[in-house]
């Protein structure tokens, strides 16, 4: 963990434990969400409807974790009135779990769209096109969660940079799908489903970026939202 924001060291050991416990829960939620995204993608690539169905079902678990952690944050705010890095931690967690919950929803969309796909060759060939985008997004999510776990600002900034690649990949994929739809209108139904999956993946990239920005806020106390990457790097190095 980065030395800038050690969670421990409070005179109240219980407060140390509460914060550490909350951080662990966020990491567990991150792990679950990561699995949901991975399973959602596998369901699509392997045309595995059983797996897709499980992803849809398991979204409830993600939602419950969000509610539980939110509740704990509320208790800490009420009972401890945290300040400085403790306050930033609680705020960053409240925002991060919201993004994680949304990522969970997008993973659920991957599952739902898989269940709606018509099982034919065109369908699976479209799905395979999602592979590159899917890998990029999984990598970005993984790095975002890593930077949160280690409270690593440099890693967070590097990860934010991946979002542009994902957006470019998404745009390319849309162009391809539109071409396919124009060439053969019979593929439209599946192509639309796949485009919605691509959109879900692109949104996961956005949420991962948000998580990285929360990490910067948590560690450095700087709000780097809604500015370009170059400005973000400059602001952090100030």
């Amino acid at each position: 963990m980065n030395q800038d924001t050690p969670l421990g060291g409070h005179i109240s050991k219980r407060f140390d434990n509460e914060l550490e416990d909350m951080r662990h829960q966020v990491l567990a939620m991150g792990g679950l969400v990561e699995t949901q995204v991975a399973n959602g993608l596998r369901g699509l690539f392997e045309s595995d409807s059983e797996l897709a169905r499980r992803v849809v079902q398991d979204d409830d678990k993600v939602d419950r974790m969000e509610v539980d952690i939110d509740d704990q944050c509320l208790k800490i705010l009420a009972r401890r009135q945290p300040a400085a890095s403790d306050l930033r931690l609680v705020v960053a967690i409240i925002k991060t779990i919201n993004d994680l919950e949304r990522i969970g929803d997008q993973a659920e969309k991957l599952g739902r769209n898989q269940l709606e796909l018509i099982d034919d060759d065109a369908g699976s060939s479209h799905c395979m096109k999602l592979e590159h985008l899917g890998n990029l997004v999984s990598k970005m999510l993984n790095k975002a969660l890593d930077s949160f776990a280690r409270m690593d600002v440099d890693e967070a900034l590097k990860t934010i940079g991946l979002d542009e690649k994902i957006n470019a990949e998404f745009d390319g994929m849309m162009r391809q799908l539109i071409t396919h739809m124009m060439e053969d209108p019979r593929t439209i139904r599946n192509a639309l489903r796949v485009s919605w999956c691509a959109r879900a993946l692109e949104r996961i990239g956005d949420h991962s970026k948000n998580i990285c920005e929360h990490v910067v806020f948590l560690v450095r106390g700087k709000d780097v939202r809604h500015i370009g990457l170059k400005e973000q790097v400059e602001m952090v190095s100030e």
Partner: peptide
């Protein structure tokens, strides 16, 4: 300052 206002040693 951080240590004082967050109640750390």
């Amino acid at each position: 300052t951080e240590n004082y206002i967050t109640g750390k040693f």
